[in-house]
Design a binder for these strands. Sequence first.
DNA 1: CCGAACTTTCAGTAAATTTTGAAGGTAAGC
DNA 2: GCTTACCTTCAAAATTTACTGAAAGTTCGG
Lengths: 173, 173
Amino acid sequence: MQLDEAKEKFIQTWGALGSNWGINRTMAQVHALLLVSPGSLSADEIMEALNISRGNANMNLRALIDWGLVTKEHKSGERRDFFYAEKDIWQVAQQVIIERRKRELKPVLKVLEELREVEGQATNPEARAFAESVQNLHSIVAQADKFLEIAVTAERNWFFESLFKMFNRKLQS
Amino acid sequence: MQLDEAKEKFIQTWGALGSNWGINRTMAQVHALLLVSPGSLSADEIMEALNISRGNANMNLRALIDWGLVTKEHKSGERRDFFYAEKDIWQVAQQVIIERRKRELKPVLKVLEELREVEGQATNPEARAFAESVQNLHSIVAQADKFLEIAVTAERNWFFESLFKMFNRKLQS
DNA sequence: CCGAACTTTCAGTAAATTTTGAAGGTAAGC
DNA sequence: GCTTACCTTCAAAATTTACTGAAAGTTCGG
Protein backbone atom coordinates (compact mmCIF):
# COMPACT_ATOMS: atom_id res chain seq x y z
CA MET A 1 0.00 0.00 0.00
CA GLN A 2 1.23 3.46 -0.80
CA LEU A 3 1.59 6.17 1.81
CA ASP A 4 -1.11 8.45 0.42
CA GLU A 5 -3.59 5.64 0.15
CA ALA A 6 -2.80 4.57 3.68
CA LYS A 7 -3.27 8.09 5.02
CA GLU A 8 -6.59 8.34 3.27
CA LYS A 9 -7.72 5.07 4.82
CA PHE A 10 -6.54 6.16 8.23
CA ILE A 11 -8.50 9.41 7.99
CA GLN A 12 -11.65 7.60 6.90
CA THR A 13 -11.41 5.04 9.67
CA TRP A 14 -10.77 7.60 12.35
CA GLY A 15 -13.72 9.60 11.04
CA ALA A 16 -16.03 6.61 11.19
CA LEU A 17 -14.88 5.74 14.69
CA GLY A 18 -15.46 9.30 15.83
CA SER A 19 -18.98 9.41 14.51
CA ASN A 20 -19.79 6.29 16.52
CA TRP A 21 -18.63 8.08 19.63
CA GLY A 22 -20.45 11.37 19.43
CA ILE A 23 -17.60 13.24 17.77
CA ASN A 24 -18.56 14.54 14.41
CA ARG A 25 -17.03 12.90 11.40
CA THR A 26 -15.26 15.99 10.11
CA MET A 27 -13.77 16.88 13.44
CA ALA A 28 -12.34 13.39 13.70
CA GLN A 29 -11.02 13.58 10.15
CA VAL A 30 -9.28 16.88 10.77
CA HIS A 31 -7.72 15.33 13.84
CA ALA A 32 -6.62 12.28 11.88
CA LEU A 33 -5.10 14.44 9.17
CA LEU A 34 -3.10 16.41 11.69
CA LEU A 35 -2.03 13.22 13.44
CA VAL A 36 -0.45 11.78 10.34
CA SER A 37 1.13 15.03 9.22
CA PRO A 38 4.65 15.40 10.57
CA GLY A 39 4.57 19.21 10.67
CA SER A 40 1.79 21.67 11.23
CA LEU A 41 -0.80 22.61 8.61
CA SER A 42 -2.54 25.83 7.65
CA ALA A 43 -6.31 26.13 7.42
CA ASP A 44 -6.05 26.13 3.62
CA GLU A 45 -4.11 22.91 3.52
CA ILE A 46 -6.72 21.26 5.70
CA MET A 47 -9.57 22.59 3.60
CA GLU A 48 -7.99 21.27 0.48
CA ALA A 49 -7.02 17.89 1.88
CA LEU A 50 -10.50 17.15 3.20
CA ASN A 51 -12.62 19.11 0.73
CA ILE A 52 -14.38 21.18 3.31
CA SER A 53 -15.24 24.86 3.51
CA ARG A 54 -13.27 27.48 5.37
CA GLY A 55 -16.00 27.92 7.96
CA ASN A 56 -16.21 24.23 8.61
CA ALA A 57 -12.47 23.89 8.98
CA ASN A 58 -12.38 26.80 11.36
CA MET A 59 -15.17 25.53 13.57
CA ASN A 60 -13.84 22.02 13.85
CA LEU A 61 -10.34 23.25 14.57
CA ARG A 62 -11.74 25.39 17.32
CA ALA A 63 -13.56 22.41 18.79
CA LEU A 64 -10.37 20.33 18.68
CA ILE A 65 -8.47 23.11 20.43
CA ASP A 66 -11.25 23.21 22.98
CA TRP A 67 -10.77 19.50 23.65
CA GLY A 68 -7.05 20.11 24.07
CA LEU A 69 -6.15 17.84 21.16
CA VAL A 70 -4.83 20.46 18.75
CA THR A 71 -2.71 23.57 19.23
CA LYS A 72 -2.61 26.72 17.20
CA GLU A 73 0.86 27.88 16.27
CA HIS A 74 2.10 31.29 15.16
CA LYS A 75 4.99 30.95 12.78
CA SER A 76 7.02 34.14 12.82
CA GLY A 77 7.10 35.81 9.46
CA GLU A 78 3.82 34.08 8.57
CA ARG A 79 0.50 35.74 8.79
CA ARG A 80 -1.45 32.50 8.69
CA ASP A 81 -2.13 30.30 11.70
CA PHE A 82 -0.83 26.75 11.71
CA PHE A 83 -2.22 23.79 13.57
CA TYR A 84 -0.70 20.64 14.93
CA ALA A 85 -2.02 17.69 16.89
CA GLU A 86 -0.58 16.13 20.02
CA LYS A 87 1.08 13.01 18.63
CA ASP A 88 1.42 10.96 21.79
CA ILE A 89 -1.73 8.86 21.69
CA TRP A 90 -1.60 8.20 25.41
CA GLN A 91 -1.79 11.96 25.95
CA VAL A 92 -4.68 12.13 23.52
CA ALA A 93 -6.53 9.39 25.33
CA GLN A 94 -5.98 11.08 28.68
CA GLN A 95 -7.24 14.36 27.32
CA VAL A 96 -10.37 12.73 25.96
CA ILE A 97 -10.99 10.97 29.27
CA ILE A 98 -10.60 14.23 31.19
CA GLU A 99 -13.11 15.99 28.98
CA ARG A 100 -15.69 13.25 28.91
CA ARG A 101 -15.51 12.72 32.62
CA LYS A 102 -16.16 16.40 33.09
CA ARG A 103 -18.85 16.73 30.47
CA GLU A 104 -20.75 13.49 30.87
CA LEU A 105 -19.89 11.34 33.84
CA LYS A 106 -20.02 14.07 36.46
CA PRO A 107 -23.50 15.33 35.53
CA VAL A 108 -24.87 11.77 35.52
CA LEU A 109 -23.40 11.07 38.93
CA LYS A 110 -24.95 14.25 40.22
CA VAL A 111 -28.42 13.28 39.01
CA LEU A 112 -28.09 9.76 40.38
CA GLU A 113 -27.15 11.17 43.76
CA GLU A 114 -30.21 13.38 43.75
CA LEU A 115 -32.37 10.43 42.82
CA ARG A 116 -31.22 8.46 45.82
CA GLU A 117 -33.15 10.89 47.92
CA VAL A 118 -36.50 9.81 46.58
CA GLU A 119 -39.11 9.50 49.29
CA GLY A 120 -38.98 5.74 49.24
CA GLN A 121 -41.20 3.62 51.37
CA ALA A 122 -39.57 0.25 51.66
CA THR A 123 -43.05 -1.19 51.53
CA ASN A 124 -43.79 -0.11 47.99
CA PRO A 125 -42.21 -2.64 45.61
CA GLU A 126 -42.06 -0.11 42.80
CA ALA A 127 -40.14 2.35 44.94
CA ARG A 128 -37.87 -0.43 46.15
CA ALA A 129 -37.02 -1.55 42.63
CA PHE A 130 -36.37 2.00 41.57
CA ALA A 131 -34.09 2.73 44.50
CA GLU A 132 -32.16 -0.42 43.80
CA SER A 133 -31.64 0.38 40.13
CA VAL A 134 -30.44 3.84 40.97
CA GLN A 135 -28.13 2.54 43.66
CA ASN A 136 -26.57 -0.09 41.42
CA LEU A 137 -26.12 2.25 38.55
CA HIS A 138 -24.54 4.84 40.78
CA SER A 139 -22.13 2.31 42.13
CA ILE A 140 -20.96 1.17 38.69
CA VAL A 141 -20.67 4.66 37.28
CA ALA A 142 -18.78 5.84 40.36
CA GLN A 143 -16.33 2.96 40.07
CA ALA A 144 -15.80 3.60 36.38
CA ASP A 145 -15.22 7.26 37.16
CA LYS A 146 -12.67 6.36 39.81
CA PHE A 147 -10.89 4.02 37.44
CA LEU A 148 -10.67 6.71 34.78
CA GLU A 149 -9.40 9.19 37.30
CA ILE A 150 -6.55 6.82 38.09
CA ALA A 151 -5.88 6.26 34.41
CA VAL A 152 -5.56 9.99 33.96
CA THR A 153 -3.39 10.57 37.01
CA ALA A 154 -1.16 7.62 36.30
CA GLU A 155 2.01 7.31 34.38
CA ARG A 156 1.47 5.36 31.26
CA ASN A 157 3.96 2.68 32.20
CA TRP A 158 2.73 2.23 35.73
CA PHE A 159 -0.80 1.95 34.47
CA PHE A 160 -0.22 -0.68 31.84
CA GLU A 161 2.11 -2.65 34.04
CA SER A 162 -0.57 -2.86 36.70
CA LEU A 163 -3.16 -3.96 34.21
CA PHE A 164 -0.76 -6.49 32.84
CA LYS A 165 -0.18 -7.98 36.28
CA MET A 166 -3.88 -8.09 36.89
CA PHE A 167 -4.33 -9.95 33.65
CA ASN A 168 -1.65 -12.49 34.48
CA ARG A 169 -3.13 -13.28 37.83
CA LYS A 170 -6.40 -13.83 36.07
CA LEU A 171 -4.85 -16.32 33.67
CA GLN A 172 -3.31 -18.35 36.46
CA SER A 173 -6.56 -18.79 38.32
CA MET B 1 -38.97 14.14 45.35
CA GLN B 2 -41.86 11.91 44.36
CA LEU B 3 -41.38 8.56 42.66
CA ASP B 4 -42.93 9.54 39.35
CA GLU B 5 -40.94 12.70 39.10
CA ALA B 6 -37.78 10.75 39.93
CA LYS B 7 -38.52 8.15 37.28
CA GLU B 8 -39.06 10.86 34.72
CA LYS B 9 -35.75 12.45 35.61
CA PHE B 10 -33.99 9.11 35.44
CA ILE B 11 -35.39 8.43 31.97
CA GLN B 12 -34.34 11.85 30.73
CA THR B 13 -30.85 11.52 32.12
CA TRP B 14 -30.32 8.06 30.74
CA GLY B 15 -31.56 9.30 27.36
CA ALA B 16 -29.15 12.21 27.36
CA LEU B 17 -26.25 9.96 28.34
CA GLY B 18 -27.14 7.51 25.61
CA SER B 19 -27.23 10.13 22.91
CA ASN B 20 -23.69 11.17 23.88
CA TRP B 21 -22.55 7.61 23.43
CA GLY B 22 -23.94 6.70 20.04
CA ILE B 23 -27.13 5.15 21.34
CA ASN B 24 -30.15 7.01 20.20
CA ARG B 25 -32.11 8.97 22.72
CA THR B 26 -35.35 7.02 22.39
CA MET B 27 -33.64 3.67 22.62
CA ALA B 28 -31.95 4.75 25.83
CA GLN B 29 -35.24 6.06 27.19
CA VAL B 30 -37.06 2.83 26.48
CA HIS B 31 -34.24 1.03 28.25
CA ALA B 32 -34.45 3.38 31.22
CA LEU B 33 -38.19 2.94 31.46
CA LEU B 34 -37.85 -0.82 31.53
CA LEU B 35 -35.04 -0.60 34.06
CA VAL B 36 -37.14 1.28 36.56
CA SER B 37 -40.26 -0.81 35.99
CA PRO B 38 -40.38 -3.76 38.37
CA GLY B 39 -42.36 -6.01 36.02
CA SER B 40 -42.45 -6.26 32.27
CA LEU B 41 -44.29 -3.85 30.00
CA SER B 42 -46.30 -4.22 26.81
CA ALA B 43 -45.59 -2.22 23.70
CA ASP B 44 -48.65 -0.07 24.39
CA GLU B 45 -47.54 0.83 27.86
CA ILE B 46 -44.17 1.91 26.53
CA MET B 47 -45.74 3.94 23.74
CA GLU B 48 -47.93 5.73 26.18
CA ALA B 49 -45.27 6.36 28.80
CA LEU B 50 -42.82 7.89 26.33
CA ASN B 51 -45.23 9.39 23.80
CA ILE B 52 -43.82 7.58 20.83
CA SER B 53 -45.42 5.77 17.92
CA ARG B 54 -45.95 2.05 17.64
CA GLY B 55 -43.35 1.73 14.91
CA ASN B 56 -40.77 3.63 16.85
CA ALA B 57 -41.35 1.57 19.97
CA ASN B 58 -41.08 -1.62 17.99
CA MET B 59 -37.84 -0.68 16.27
CA ASN B 60 -36.11 0.47 19.41
CA LEU B 61 -37.24 -2.58 21.32
CA ARG B 62 -35.83 -4.73 18.59
CA ALA B 63 -32.52 -2.86 18.75
CA LEU B 64 -32.40 -3.34 22.52
CA ILE B 65 -33.07 -7.03 22.12
CA ASP B 66 -30.33 -7.11 19.52
CA TRP B 67 -27.92 -5.60 22.04
CA GLY B 68 -28.97 -8.23 24.54
CA LEU B 69 -30.28 -5.68 27.02
CA VAL B 70 -33.97 -6.48 26.80
CA THR B 71 -35.89 -9.71 26.55
CA LYS B 72 -39.24 -10.40 25.01
CA GLU B 73 -41.55 -12.41 27.20
CA HIS B 74 -44.62 -14.43 26.27
CA LYS B 75 -47.13 -14.39 29.06
CA SER B 76 -49.37 -17.40 28.76
CA GLY B 77 -52.98 -16.48 28.23
CA GLU B 78 -51.81 -13.16 26.75
CA ARG B 79 -51.49 -12.55 23.09
CA ARG B 80 -49.38 -9.43 23.49
CA ASP B 81 -45.62 -9.49 23.92
CA PHE B 82 -44.10 -8.13 27.09
CA PHE B 83 -40.62 -6.73 27.53
CA TYR B 84 -38.27 -6.51 30.45
CA ALA B 85 -34.74 -5.27 30.94
CA GLU B 86 -31.84 -7.01 32.56
CA LYS B 87 -31.68 -5.26 35.92
CA ASP B 88 -28.15 -6.17 37.00
CA ILE B 89 -26.22 -3.17 35.79
CA TRP B 90 -22.95 -5.08 35.78
CA GLN B 91 -24.53 -7.50 33.30
CA VAL B 92 -25.74 -4.56 31.25
CA ALA B 93 -22.29 -3.00 31.20
CA GLN B 94 -20.72 -6.31 30.15
CA GLN B 95 -23.24 -6.72 27.37
CA VAL B 96 -22.56 -3.23 26.07
CA ILE B 97 -18.81 -3.85 26.18
CA ILE B 98 -19.18 -7.11 24.27
CA GLU B 99 -21.21 -5.45 21.52
CA ARG B 100 -19.06 -2.39 21.14
CA ARG B 101 -15.89 -4.42 21.06
CA LYS B 102 -17.35 -6.49 18.28
CA ARG B 103 -18.86 -3.62 16.34
CA GLU B 104 -16.22 -0.93 16.72
CA LEU B 105 -12.94 -1.93 18.28
CA LYS B 106 -12.34 -5.02 16.17
CA PRO B 107 -12.82 -3.27 12.81
CA VAL B 108 -10.51 -0.45 13.85
CA LEU B 109 -7.83 -2.90 14.94
CA LYS B 110 -8.13 -4.65 11.62
CA VAL B 111 -7.58 -1.45 9.65
CA LEU B 112 -4.66 -0.41 11.83
CA GLU B 113 -3.02 -3.78 11.26
CA GLU B 114 -3.39 -3.36 7.52
CA LEU B 115 -1.90 0.09 7.70
CA ARG B 116 1.24 -1.18 9.40
CA GLU B 117 2.11 -2.78 6.12
CA VAL B 118 2.62 0.50 4.32
CA GLU B 119 5.67 0.52 2.11
CA GLY B 120 7.63 2.68 4.49
CA GLN B 121 11.10 3.87 3.73
CA ALA B 122 12.72 4.78 7.03
CA THR B 123 14.34 7.65 5.17
CA ASN B 124 11.13 9.49 4.43
CA PRO B 125 10.16 11.51 7.51
CA GLU B 126 6.54 11.58 6.45
CA ALA B 127 6.39 7.80 6.22
CA ARG B 128 8.22 7.49 9.53
CA ALA B 129 5.78 9.78 11.32
CA PHE B 130 2.85 7.93 9.83
CA ALA B 131 4.15 4.51 10.80
CA GLU B 132 4.78 5.73 14.30
CA SER B 133 1.28 7.14 14.71
CA VAL B 134 -0.27 3.95 13.47
CA GLN B 135 1.92 1.83 15.70
CA ASN B 136 1.16 3.86 18.82
CA LEU B 137 -2.51 3.95 18.15
CA HIS B 138 -2.61 0.23 17.53
CA SER B 139 -0.82 -0.40 20.76
CA ILE B 140 -3.23 1.68 22.84
CA VAL B 141 -6.35 0.32 21.18
CA ALA B 142 -5.10 -3.24 21.53
CA GLN B 143 -4.43 -2.73 25.23
CA ALA B 144 -7.84 -1.20 25.78
CA ASP B 145 -9.38 -4.11 23.93
CA LYS B 146 -7.50 -6.58 26.12
CA PHE B 147 -8.57 -4.77 29.24
CA LEU B 148 -12.22 -4.84 28.19
CA GLU B 149 -11.93 -8.50 27.39
CA ILE B 150 -10.83 -9.10 30.95
CA ALA B 151 -13.64 -6.97 32.29
CA VAL B 152 -16.09 -9.09 30.36
CA THR B 153 -14.60 -12.43 31.29
CA ALA B 154 -14.18 -11.54 34.93
CA GLU B 155 -16.43 -11.96 37.86
CA ARG B 156 -17.63 -8.64 39.05
CA ASN B 157 -16.08 -9.06 42.48
CA TRP B 158 -12.74 -10.24 41.25
CA PHE B 159 -12.58 -7.39 38.81
CA PHE B 160 -13.35 -4.62 41.24
CA GLU B 161 -11.16 -6.08 43.92
CA SER B 162 -8.22 -6.09 41.55
CA LEU B 163 -8.85 -2.53 40.52
CA PHE B 164 -9.19 -1.57 44.14
CA LYS B 165 -5.81 -3.08 44.98
CA MET B 166 -4.32 -1.29 42.03
CA PHE B 167 -5.66 2.03 43.27
CA ASN B 168 -4.33 1.46 46.76
CA ARG B 169 -0.86 0.72 45.57
CA LYS B 170 -1.06 3.91 43.55
CA LEU B 171 -2.15 5.93 46.52
CA GLN B 172 0.77 4.70 48.64
CA SER B 173 3.40 5.69 46.13
C1' DC C 1 -60.02 -21.46 7.30
C1' DC C 2 -61.65 -16.88 9.22
C1' DG C 3 -61.34 -12.92 11.89
C1' DA C 4 -59.47 -10.60 15.81
C1' DA C 5 -55.47 -9.12 18.24
C1' DC C 6 -51.33 -7.99 17.91
C1' DT C 7 -46.54 -7.13 15.54
C1' DT C 8 -43.52 -5.67 11.86
C1' DT C 9 -42.16 -3.05 7.93
C1' DC C 10 -41.33 0.90 5.30
C1' DA C 11 -42.23 5.07 2.45
C1' DG C 12 -42.87 9.59 3.52
C1' DT C 13 -42.14 13.31 6.73
C1' DA C 14 -40.14 15.75 10.45
C1' DA C 15 -36.38 16.93 13.27
C1' DA C 16 -31.64 17.43 14.25
C1' DT C 17 -27.13 18.08 12.79
C1' DT C 18 -23.58 19.50 9.75
C1' DT C 19 -21.81 22.33 6.14
C1' DT C 20 -21.44 26.21 3.29
C1' DG C 21 -20.31 30.76 1.78
C1' DA C 22 -20.53 35.34 2.17
C1' DA C 23 -20.25 39.29 5.28
C1' DG C 24 -17.69 41.23 8.75
C1' DG C 25 -13.67 41.41 11.69
C1' DT C 26 -8.57 41.89 12.70
C1' DA C 27 -3.89 42.87 12.32
C1' DA C 28 0.46 43.41 9.72
C1' DG C 29 2.87 45.89 6.31
C1' DC C 30 3.23 49.66 3.46
C1' DG D 1 -4.86 55.10 7.70
C1' DC D 2 -5.40 52.01 3.77
C1' DT D 3 -4.79 47.56 1.71
C1' DT D 4 -4.17 42.91 1.88
C1' DA D 5 -4.22 38.46 3.80
C1' DC D 6 -6.11 36.04 6.77
C1' DC D 7 -9.66 34.52 10.56
C1' DT D 8 -14.39 34.20 12.57
C1' DT D 9 -19.28 34.17 12.64
C1' DC D 10 -23.76 32.87 11.40
C1' DA D 11 -28.09 32.41 8.62
C1' DA D 12 -29.51 29.48 5.22
C1' DA D 13 -29.03 25.09 2.66
C1' DA D 14 -27.84 20.37 2.52
C1' DT D 15 -27.47 16.20 4.58
C1' DT D 16 -28.26 12.75 7.87
C1' DT D 17 -30.95 10.57 11.22
C1' DA D 18 -35.18 9.52 13.67
C1' DC D 19 -40.22 9.06 13.79
C1' DT D 20 -44.85 8.28 12.23
C1' DG D 21 -48.78 5.87 10.72
C1' DA D 22 -50.93 3.07 7.66
C1' DA D 23 -50.59 -1.22 5.29
C1' DA D 24 -48.98 -5.84 5.28
C1' DG D 25 -47.80 -9.75 8.02
C1' DT D 26 -48.32 -13.15 11.76
C1' DT D 27 -50.48 -15.99 15.16
C1' DC D 28 -54.06 -17.88 17.68
C1' DG D 29 -58.74 -19.22 19.15
C1' DG D 30 -62.87 -20.76 17.43
